[in-house]
Simulated scan of single mutants.
Amino acid sequence: MNKVIFRPIHDNKKKHIDLLLLADEQEDMIDRYLEHGDMWMLEDNGLKATCVVTDEGNGTLEIKNLAVVPEHQRQGYGKAMVEFIAKQYNSHTKLRVGTGDSPLTMPFYHSCGFTETCRIKDFFTDNYDHTIIEAGVILKDMVVMERQINME
């Protein structure tokens, strides 16, 4: 990583729908949180990642969408975004994410300090209009994971 810049996106968030769809592959599901969430871009000689977070109340912030441009995945940009969000919203106490039980996403969130708190049974099969397969795994339940905001 060279000169990483985090930039808020306030207008025309849907301009980045192709990137958002990498993390949440159904547009009407993205529409449920995009406009009321805070959207951030990570730039490092061009766009590398995006993240949408929402304030869930009681000191809890939720990552609704975290996507890294495919050719820049596994280079630290996703983790940098999580750490930026934790620092940017340090008045909150907890950071939550809901994800599929995928061999790609679970190890990533564990490496960022998240631990599983619960599962929402059949979330993906009940809320998406198609089967979601990631790394050969059919996603059914949502895994809810949390970490403390300040992990120093």
Rank of each mutant, 00 (worst) to 15 (best):
N2S: 11
N2Y: 08
I5E: 13
I5M: 12
I5T: 10
P8Y: 03
P8W: 09
I9K: 11
H10Q: 02
D11P: 04
K13W: 05
K13S: 06
K13P: 13
K15Y: 11
H16S: 12
I17C: 01
D18H: 08
L21P: 01
L22Y: 10
L22C: 12
A23L: 10
A23Y: 11
A23H: 06
D24W: 07
E25C: 13
E27W: 00
E27G: 02
D28W: 10
I30P: 00
I30L: 03
I30F: 01
R32A: 14
R32E: 14
Y33W: 06
L34C: 11
L34G: 05
L34Y: 09
E35N: 14
G37P: 00
M41L: 14
L42C: 13
L42H: 07
D44I: 06
N45H: 13
N45V: 09
G46E: 03
A49E: 08
A49L: 02
A49K: 08
T50Q: 09
T50V: 13
V52F: 10
V53L: 02
T54Y: 06
D55C: 01
E56D: 12
N58G: 05
T60E: 09
T60P: 04
L61Y: 07
L61M: 13
E62L: 02
K64I: 04
N65H: 01
N65V: 09
A67F: 01
A67P: 03
V69H: 04
P70S: 10
P70D: 10
E71I: 11
E71R: 02
Q73F: 11
Q73C: 07
R74Y: 12
Y77M: 01
K79C: 07
A80R: 07
A80K: 08
M81Q: 00
E83F: 11
F84C: 03
A86H: 01
K87V: 00
K87Q: 12
Y89E: 02
S91R: 11
H92L: 06
H92D: 01
H92G: 02
T93Y: 11
T93W: 07
R96K: 15
G98F: 03
T99L: 05
T99Y: 01
G100I: 05
D101F: 03
S102M: 10
S102T: 07
S102K: 07
L104S: 08
L104I: 15
M106C: 12
M106Q: 14
P107M: 03
F108A: 09
F108Y: 06
Y109N: 13
H110W: 12
H110L: 14
H110V: 08
H110T: 03
S111T: 06
C112W: 10
F114H: 05
E116N: 05
T117R: 11
I120A: 08
K121Q: 11
K121L: 06
K121F: 00
D122R: 01
D122L: 01
F123S: 00
F123P: 00
F123N: 03
F123T: 02
T125S: 15
D126V: 07
N127H: 15
Y128I: 10
Y128W: 03
D129V: 05
D129G: 13
H130K: 15
T131W: 05
T131K: 14
I132K: 09
A135Q: 14
A135F: 04
G136I: 01
G136E: 05
V137S: 12
K140L: 04
M142Q: 12
M142W: 10
V143W: 00
E146R: 04
R147V: 05
Q148F: 07
M151P: 00
M151N: 14
